[in-house]
Amino acid sequence: MGFGIFIVITALLPFVIGQYYLYVVTQVMIYAIATLGLDVLYGRTGQLSLAHASFFGIGAYVAALSNTFGVPVVLQPVLVLGLAVIVGALVAIPTLRLSGLRLALVTLLFGELFVWLIDHASNLTGGSQGMTVQPLTLGPFDSSEPLDGYALAAIASLLATVMCVQLGKTQYGRRMLAVRDSELASASVGIPIVRTKIAAFILSAILAGAAGWIYAYVVGFVSPTTFDLFGSVNFLVAVILGGSGRVLGAWCGALYIVLVPEVFSSIGYPNLFPIVGGAVMIVVAMTIPRGLVGSLEKLGETLWAVRGRRGRAGG
């Protein structure tokens, strides 16, 4: 039923809101796809990564450079997928030995390497100045048209959401939760821990890459600052604030990291976001470690239990 509501709202939205807001919603959808990816890796599997924005960037630069190299439209998703699988698996290798903050540091290194590469390949990428992305056209479809970009993001985000909900009902989804919570218990029931972590890295890289690819075409411009450490931390904030391990949480997180900077920009203080965002993060970590969605779930459970008890006492 949830998906039905999603589809109806998505279909009606363009008739209700103006182009600017449609563009913002498109961004929320794109960021939701990438956040779902980090949620698979961090929220479900417990592997802390500070390179998520780099995977987002890989997808974005595939789109940006495809025009330069003349890569046909139909080949580009295959390219994004292939790169995500290969690079995701490469970045996953340290998890064979590392976890927690030490793993995060190694992924941070990879993230920095990515930005360095973009900066230094400036004759291709425009370096830190960034580069414009030629719109994606296929028949009547044109990604620079707000409605077309919106439709692309909507379909992709629906697919990603369905897949992540489905993941919760699968052996791989269970493996991830088990690896996050107890590697000892995982081994005792026969879960291949290393393979599970690598699968999580790859899946998260695919989602981030796909999101980045759409992002570049919708925004029409890419520059390395979107894909640096701050970008990666932003995704982490989205996962934790929304509620890690929860699909709806990833959406709430994406809503936050897109809308709040937008609000600060509109009142003329765009630089306030990092400061206020940091403060919000501290408050969330200390008061609602389960995130928004997790806390609402808990509240719902408690109310339900109280109601049940009253019902029994009364009857």
Binding site: L177, R180, D181, S182, A185, S186, A187, S188, G190, G245
Partner: peptide, 22 residues
Amino acid sequence: AAQRAHYGVVRGFQTVRLLEGE
């Protein structure tokens, strides 16, 4: 250990180990 489990050799832990959040 994980492969032995697939052969059907499975253990419990002295201190129960579960997925606490689930």
